[in-house]
Amino acid sequence: MKEKLSKIMEDAMAQIDESGQLDRLNDIRVAFLGKKGELTSVLKSMKEVAPEDRPKVGQMVNEARSIIEKKIEERRTFFEQKVMEEKIKSETIDVTLPGKRTLLGHRHPNTITLEEVEDIFIGLGYQVVEGPEIEFDYYNFEALNIPANHPAKDEQDTFYITKDILLRTQTSSVQVHEMEKGKLPIRMIAPGRVFRSDEVDATHSPTFHQIEGLVVDKNITFADLKGTLQEFAVRLFGEGTKVKFRPHHFQFTEPSAEMDVSCFKCGGKGCRFCKGSGWVEILGCGMVHPHVLEMSGIDPEEYTGFAFGVGLERIALFKYEIDDMRLMYENDTRFLKQF
């Protein structure tokens, strides 16, 4: 009996070792361990064994079964491993082929720039508000300290609809609407379209965008104006951006200033963008003129404020190095898809 078992084991091991593929292992399992398999038949012939030897033989059969099973399992794992390796080997791809992208649309460079500006000021507690583009003369000029027949009115090349209604030349008109609401303090920015009678060329457009800013509160100082706009410049153009304030004149602010930022192309060394000066003029600003506050019903003895106005295209053109403003209104997708 013992010899018989040894023979079965030997046969099984040999067959397992010789098995060339996964399917064959099943046949081997059936042949040796199945209901009609060789080991089973050994058990079936147990009656021929002396009763006292039966437990021992039973044990030997069981040991043989577990050895064969283990061997088959090892072999199966080996085969599976091999199959997987081969599969993997055959599946190498060219990772330099292009990725599959969903063709998303693009925002206009003006909008991208505006959103950056809005984020900065919203973070500083500013509300983003809007005002009408077709506007009364009063809001565009008179309430901003530019009375009828003032030369500053001529300088702006205004489009008129009627004597009293015009296309706003500046988003500053929104300042007046905000102040007239009578809710103080005010911290707002007002982006929007403005219109000036300029012929279309690489640097002019009769339609363009401005962003107006206004803060009115107690104890607002020129130093606050400087600090706020510096914060704005650094956030928009990056750490290390320097600002320079130069005296200027606007009818509706006093003192007034223009702000230059260090050229973000050359870092201030001078290049073709800043025409060699190292500085780029970015915006006009100043302390709200006390008369403007008065006209809108705010007591300039109690409240002060500052205001600023930025040309949106000016920033966008600089930021993206766009050399012709006409591109902004042509809507050629080869242009738009670059942003």
Binding site: L124, P185, N219, I220, T221, A223, D224, K226, G227
Partner: peptide, 8 residues
């Protein structure tokens, strides 16, 4: 002139 942020 210094640079500050409105503290109000």
């Amino acid at each position: 002139i210094p640079m500050t942020l409105p503290e109000s």
